[in-house]
């Protein structure tokens, strides 16, 4: 961003409020309308839009999300099959087709990503897998947000012995081998239904992924709680709970949002990894991980079964990471150099 730029119109507006305020201070009553100020969020949004990679990430994430949500329904309407539809017992139909190929080897739009071993449409399955992968990523992140932010904020604000005990618990949990814990949890409480297994997956990932969030929030709170506005809030008789959640936590939002966006791909990767190992999502439900696991068995003969879910997942994870990096640059006050 080192290129010389002439001031854009909205940057001029940005200079506006301060001047208007200064004027107002000197001659009260003489000011007319004042320019709408730029809020922190609008500022961050502008910086985000200047970051090409982040915009690319945002666009891809939006496209993937929307098509995952509505895709399977659209396919059902247009072609008349669901992601778990197995055509018939005709062995010619239940084998795997390459992309854009019909049952007789002719060109067909029906299966743009081919079909899997059982003849299920790969495109519909990738979209449905996207639904579940994104759902797991977002929901587990929300769980970790909820636990991590509350836990970290309370530990940081209360301080002293409470903080010490709470953070030592986090340290202990940190030192447990994460993947093994999740695998043990999943195999101990192995559920009979695919949905039950999915819920178990949320719980298993959610319970271990809030640790970093708690540390980040605690660090933020430690520096925020000594600021004067917290003292001012205390001097006005606001209760501690209210100070934590209405005054301090909103001030930690920047780093929290950044970490959350970076955590979504991480959790999706964990989910894929677990599904790949067979601990995660069970058929007939699909996730990108379980699709890849199915695909890898036939990689020599039917490579598209691995390539399509793999590429889609990689693209989405890249995009989420670019978006997270972009958000960090946009929201972090220390990085505000350009």
């Amino acid at each position: 961003m080192a290129t010389e730029k002439k001031p854009e119109p909205d940057e001029l507006i940005h200079i506006g409020p301060e001047m208007a305020v200064a004027e107002a201070d000197l001659m009260p009553g003489e000011v007319g309308r004042f320019v709408q100020g730029t809020s922190l969020w609008r500022d961050a949004w502008r910086r985000l839009l200047k970051n090409k990679l982040a915009v690319f990430g945002l666009v891809v994430v939006v496209i993937v999300t929307i098509s995952s949500i509505i895709g399977p329904t659209v396919i059902q309407r247009v072609f008349g099959f669901t992601p778990d539809y197995i055509p018939s017992n005709d062995p010619r139909l239940t084998q795997s087709f390459p992309p854009f190929t019909g049952p007789n080897g002719e060109f067909s739009w029906a299966h743009p990503m081919g079909t899997d071993n059982a003849g299920r449409d790969q495109f519909a399955r990738v979209l449905q897998g996207g639904q579940i992968s994104l759902f797991v990523g977002i929901l587990a992140t929300l769980v970790s947000l909820l636990i991590g932010v509350s836990y970290g904020a309370i530990a940081g604000y209360v301080g002293g012995r409470v903080d010490n005990v709470m953070m030592r618990i986090v340290d202990v949990l940190y030192s447990l081998p994460y993947v093994i814990v999740v695998i043990v949890l999943l195999s101990m409480f192995r559920s009979q239904t695919p949905r039950g297994q999915l819920i178990l997956l949320f719980v298993a990932i959610g319970t271990v992924s809030w640790l970093t969030m708690a540390r980040i929030v605690r660090g933020q709170v430690l520096s925020l709680k000594n600021q004067e506005f917290v003292l001012a809030a205390r001097a006005t008789g606001v209760s501690n709970t209210r100070i934590i959640f209405r005054h301090i936590v909103p001030n930690t939002l920047g780093p929290v949002i950044v970490y959350a966006t970076l955590e979504i791909p991480q959790i999706m990767l964990t989910e894929a990894f677990l599904s790949f190992l067979g601990f995660g999502v069970q058929a007939p439900l699909a996730s990108w991980g379980s699709l890849a696991a199915d695909g890898i068995q036939n990689i020599a003969v039917f490579p598209w079964q691995l390539i399509f879910p793999g590429v889609t997942m990689a693209l989405t994870l890249f995009s989420l990471n670019f978006l997270g990096d972009g958000l960090r640059d946009a929201l972090d006050p220390q990085m505000r150099t350009v």
Partner: peptide, 11 residues
């Protein structure tokens, strides 16, 4: 308080 810059919640 002394410093009006920091004694209001910025958010």
């Amino acid at each position: 308080f002394q410093d009006p810059m920091t004694s209001l919640n910025p958010f």
